[in-house]
Design a protein around this nucleic acid. Structure first.
Lengths: 212, 212
DNA sequence: CCGGTCATGGGTCGGCAGACTCATCGGATC
DNA sequence: GATCCGATGAGTCTGCCGACCCATGACCGG
């Protein structure tokens, strides 16, 4: 689980991003703050592997904040109006990544994983960076969840949207009820749960079910 | 259920906000687009009661987009650098609300509910506006969920964190298994579900369970 | 070709889940 | 004070759920 701190004076952006990252199965936002100086304080009481910092903040901007937190966290800088100049300054302060706020959420999520894994993205060319990010696009699931088969995942998806009865699951998948129960039994083992209610909750938490 | 469309060229912001609004029990984001002109197209195929539009977008800015969508949707304008000038222009184009991106998410959520309910917030003074918003801070739950009793809500919270067995629920609440089953029966009726798995999913969707 | 894994399916069995009806008691409401 | 509702609890019964064991055919990697 990657602990993430967000620093941005635009609350709407910060809270939205927080919700979005929290919905990833392998990340957890542990703090949302609205100014640069507060970042250092927050990190003292609440450690985080990765911090996402807006470069444009009032009261001592993001760059200064990054410089002061040093090695307590790895910083990813985001900017509204991304420029090469800003990128240079971010790199100089020790940031490990630099992104425009115009990039898709999936890209930032991949960057968070890459940076948490020790990668430094900021000195790479765009092609190199995208290549690295591609290897981090998928969430690192729990060991149990990672070993789920395709069919088991299918059943979990149905479970998570409320298809809970064995006969309904069997109907939807065109298999017998016996097979459904067999699959469920392996799911219970792999997820370390004891019934389909807990399995459904786990499926939602792990992001196996698509809410949209 | 309030259908919401989001138009913002900063994908990170748009997707983050989308996730955040989707996590509300009474709103659903039906589209996220990244330019002004695309808003009109999107609304033609996918109706939405409320649209959240960034005033600063390349390729014909948000103001023009709002003017062209007229009465198909009610627009709330958000801006990075909120100014009175921008607010005037938004009001002139027919927007029903105007907010800085620095406001908390809860405020925007309340605004979405207010605007969906027919309120026009843009001509109000700050005090008047906050007064109106205060009446919309709470999500309008489904009729069924709204009538849940305190005890029923307690059971749902436990269910949603994986306490699924009757005897465990009884232990945690210091009541008999019989009573647990009686409460569950009323919950099933009120939420229109048929077993505790579906109830747990509904509880999560309705925000009855606290994830953090 | 052989071993492993996956999807499919069968059988059995104990036990819990859900549906239905009812009772008591306290607090609120009128 | 009569009434309603919420919380507590009980009894009964059908049937599904979960646990355990096993079999077969397909596929894949060595």
């Amino acid at each position: 689980m990657i602990r993430v701190m967000i620093a941005d004076d635009h609350q709407l952006f910060a809270e939205g991003l927080s919700q979005a990252l929290n919905s990833l199965p392998d990340a957890r936002v542990v703090g949302v703050i609205n100014s640069g100086p507060a970042l250092e304080d927050a990190l003292r009481t609440q450690p985080a592997e990765v911090s996402i910092v807006d470069i444009e903040m009032p009261g001592g901007d993001g760059i200064a904040a990054i410089g002061s937190i040093g090695n307590r966290t790895r910083a990813i800088v985001v900017s509204m109006h991304a420029s090469d100049d800003q990128k240079e300054r971010a790199a100089g302060a020790g940031a490990k990544g630099f992104f425009s706020k115009a990039v898709p959420l999936a890209t930032l999520a991949a960057a968070v994983r890459a940076v948490a894994d020790g990668k430094n993205l900021i000195q790479l060319s765009e092609e190199e960076r995208d290549q690295v990010l591609d290897t981090y696009r998928e969430a690192q699931l729990d060991p149990g969840a990672a070993s789920l088969t395709a069919r088991e995942r299918e059943i979990l998806q149905l479970l998570a949207i409320g298809v809970s009865a064995t006969d309904e699951l069997a109907d939807r998948l065109y298999i017998s009820q016996k097979t459904v129960k067999n699959h469920l039994a392996s799911i219970f083992q792999k997820l370390a749960v004891s019934d389909r209610t807990q399995a459904a909750i786990e499926a939602i938490r792990l992001g196996i079910a698509k809410p949209s």
